[in-house]
Design a protein around this nucleic acid. Structure first.
Lengths: 201, 201
DNA sequence: CTTGACATTGACCGAACGGTCAACTAGGGT
DNA sequence: ACCCTAGTTGACCGTTCGGTCAATGTCAAG
């Protein structure tokens, strides 16, 4: 049971890393197993198929992001809008570090999955869809707090959070394609401009 | 020469459609050839490898976007900022139509390629990078005109155009993952908010 | 000591992958 | 009539793909 969990966990972690740095279709089950020191026969003891592994990887990536990026960024030790700004500096520093270590920007794991798989696998699509929605929540909370404090006028915080997070995804895609972490910092500065009253006709 | 061009063209067009609606790694050379009514042996007479086809597909997709979306959106029959708004309604209507026909949103062909291939193939990455830069130009032009007309204060038009187009990519990724064209319309409304003076500090 | 549930292994499956190649066809220039 | 080039074809290459399975190992509960 212990060793089992460990094997399963090693598979997920290996897959997470390989798929994130390459792509779902570029990485085979065999390679994942090699990387996790597991025989392929064992793989199918824990996962009925490769796509079920993908779903598990998404769960783990979401948990990872929450622990390392969301929690840190949205701590309420600073004003709510400053937390959103801190979110961008956090992901900037994260990807800058990754680039120093690997020479590459790999983008957003959820955006990557969504881009590659949304038209191919409905379960993966809806899981990514759900993760994106969940990811908007800390932004909604921060924006709502900002409105309550009077830092922002009354706005549609849910729609604004969605716009900001869509912008995040666009920034990450740009940073990946240009392989330049500085884009995260530079473009991130403008994120809060997406939070203005709904006038604009 | 005529028939040759035609064969080559059919291959590119078939690949463009298949890769756009699925993904590069999901679509094999054989399937592309079947779709184009070409034998696989012929394929390698025109393309040294599958990735060279990908580069040709990117060229054709860029030309397609320029002819069908950019030209139409950025006609100078209306004020410059209205052209940017028209760009969003154009892509909204395009993808709404695609969804009606196919039930799916397939996102941005360049964003898709960039997401899937940037870490795998440097030539493809830099080609997509270049296409993104080129795509910013009509936005730069419109923004510059808007500044000249006094519709906007003096801003960094290049940086603003980049922010807006990154937002476009994020919107397209969101629309694809949520499979909902309405997101393009709703989120697109806020694009011009990314064009404000650089203060904000 | 036995049983049963879970874990592990390696051999194996058919299909598909990207890519190669020699043979053949077609057509225009000399 | 000849050749040369470009285009076409189908058989074929080794490799990898996702997935299956029966046999074996492990170990804790009864």
């Amino acid at each position: 049971m212990d060793a089992a969990n460990d094997t399963r966990q090693r598979i997920i972690t290996a897959a997470q890393e390989l798929i994130y740095t390459r792509s779902y279709n570029e990485v085979g089950v065999q390679e994942i197993c090699d990387h996790a020191n597991v025989k392929k026969g064992s793989f199918y003891h824990f996962f009925p198929s490769k796509r079920d592994l993908a779903l598990a990887v998404l769960d783990q990536s979401q948990a990872f992001m929450h622990e390392t990026i969301i929690k840190k960024s949205f701590l309420d030790d600073i004003p709510p809008l400053a937390r959103i700004e801190r979110f961008f500096t956090t992901i900037y520093e994260f990807h800058k570090q990754v680039k120093e270590n690997t020479g590459r920007i790999f983008g957003c794991p959820f955006g990557n999955f969504g881009c590659e798989m949304s038209t191919q696998d409905e379960d993966i699509r809806s899981k990514v869809d759900n993760i994106l929605s969940t990811s908007e929540k800390p932004f909604v909370k921060a924006l709502t707090e900002a409105v309550e404090r009077g830092d922002l006028p009354a706005i549609d915080t849910a729609a604004t959070a969605r716009a900001i997070f869509a912008y995040v995804e666009g920034i990450m895609l740009y940073a990946k394609t240009c392989n330049d972490p500085e884009l995260i910092r530079e473009l991130g500065k403008r994120a809060l401009q997406l939070a203005v009253p709904v006038n604009m006709q």
